[in-house]
Design a protein around this nucleic acid. Sequence first.
DNA 1: CCGAGGTTGTTGAACGCTCAACCAAATCGG
DNA 2: CCGATTTGGTTGAGCGTTCAACAACCTCGG
Lengths: 153, 153
Amino acid sequence: MVVMTRWLDPDEQRTWRAFLAATRALMDTLDRDLQRDAGMPHAYYEILVRLSEAPERRLRMSELAQAAGSSRSRLSHAVARLEAAGWVRRDDCPTDRRGQIAVLTDAGFTTLAAAAPGHVEGVRRHLFDALSPAQVDQLRRISETLADHLTGS
Amino acid sequence: MVVMTRWLDPDEQRTWRAFLAATRALMDTLDRDLQRDAGMPHAYYEILVRLSEAPERRLRMSELAQAAGSSRSRLSHAVARLEAAGWVRRDDCPTDRRGQIAVLTDAGFTTLAAAAPGHVEGVRRHLFDALSPAQVDQLRRISETLADHLTGS
DNA sequence: CCGAGGTTGTTGAACGCTCAACCAAATCGG
DNA sequence: CCGATTTGGTTGAGCGTTCAACAACCTCGG
């Protein structure tokens, strides 16, 4: 059976391309700034953030992967690098002998604290300063809807 | 001089994290689908799209990089791969001996035509179907504002 | 016409991500 | 209690991106 493709109309085209351009430019900028100023990509920064917010700054690998929106494999590679940098340590899990627990070290926390102001400033300048309060609200609703829609299917 | 960091308030935090989660999930999904169904990452798909829309399906490397939102280096590597796949050809530029012109081959066009319906369907399902018409309009304005703000600074 | 400086495009190394394969440990069904 | 299945995490290969360095060419002032 032949199914007709529901192509994008001109308005949707325009929206989609603007969305692509905007998100790419935004992420590229933040990523480059973070790499330059803190020596780490945004994905690693986010891992450190999630760890810093966890009780005792420790999380099971799989929970950390979930929180950071990362695959297990990606996280495993990433934590290996973060461990080599001295920013994260691996502990064995007492209740599950398969488990590993990633722990943010003091050095990791210090590095994160040094990187955060510059990064937040970038997010503010490149995202929030460009939008009206109403648009920020719209963006929140849109993003939450999309995130629900994508992770719930 | 010490400058106070303008931290994100809770609403901004929530917006930023939802935005991160949504864009990451969306791009990951589309990228994976495209890789599975068409054997190419989204960045390569976009290069083929831009070429297909150009007069005679040919563009100077630097214009193509601009159009696809890519660095020169990235495009150079990408076109090398696309050429190896037989989807793109390189011609010399007649007016500038430094120049190279990327040309979409018939095989490239055929591959793109085969990949497009599935990809567009994905964009529709994961983005437009989840949003109201008003939200699509909001997203367009927000994206255009951000893109202007980022590329114009 | 010449040389300085800018532009175009490529290259190779380092790095991060993906995917599939894999091991070890936990859990489930009978 | 035992085998089958599932879960947690790691590994290595292949690929795409970045960055810095580079070569070739153009351009513009003098």
